[in-house]
Amino acid sequence: MKNLEADFFSKHDPKIIPIIRNATIGIAGAGGLGSNVAVTLARVGIGKLIIADFDKIEPSNLNRQQYFIEQIGEPKVIALLENLKQINPFSKYQIHHIKLDENNISSIYKDVDIIVEAFDKAEMKKMLIETWIAEFPEKPIIAASGLAGYGMTELIHTKKFDNLYICGDEITKLNDDISPMAPRVGIVANMQANLVLELLLHQLPDVISKQSHELL
């Protein structure tokens, strides 16, 4: 197992390994965005992931979420933990089968370096962002807005507002004709995960704002 762990990290630049192994990242929600962010960050080798979600897996989730047929009916966080351990057993995973609200966010996520907003509903996104900015103004929050439908990859972007980052197209609404689908949900989830890495690995604050400013 020790050799396997060394081999797992053998493709990484040795300089980044201590930073990613010491990082703790929060993921709020384990649906389309959250399950994809978690799988990517587990493959990256982030030291610890803290993931919370209250929901159970439904057949319709399998169109974009990182679950399997035999996991239908299981709580998402339980199934995700099984899947993450299959991908990378060398990281730590802390799961919470709970509905997040203004009162439990700060205790669950107090030890994270960065939080990723991975909810489905806009009102939950707003609740998390406002709670986070009030409780942890110094810690980055990476949210997603506008990712339904297909195509239009070129409209998807990242914007920075102090420590709040928004990934998505910021326009595509859900309706009967436009639903979240695997490609765009996966793109935005991986943009969030990519930004986690960028923020961890460019730890000088002036470099972060300079780099991110160029994105706007």
């Binding site: 929600g29 649906g31 389309g32 965005l33 959250g34 991975a118 909810f119 489905d120 509903k121 806009a122 996104k125 707003k126 962002i129 406002e130 900015i133 009030a134 949210a143 997603a144 807005s145 506008g146 990712l147 339904a148 914007k159 507002f161 102090d162 709040l164 928004i166 998505g168 910021e170 326009i171 595509t172 609404k173 859900l174 979240p180 949900v185």
Partner: peptide, 29 residues
């Protein structure tokens, strides 16, 4: 850079030269 809560939308007076950011959150995830 300061968060403005919804109950202040009708009362908070925005001063000249302010930098206002309005972020639109859309369901889907």
């Amino acid at each position: 850079g300061e968060l403005i809560k919804k109950d202040e939308y009708g009362t908070k007076i925005v001063s000249e030269n302010a930098d206002v950011k309005i972020i639109h959150l859309i369901s889907g995830g």
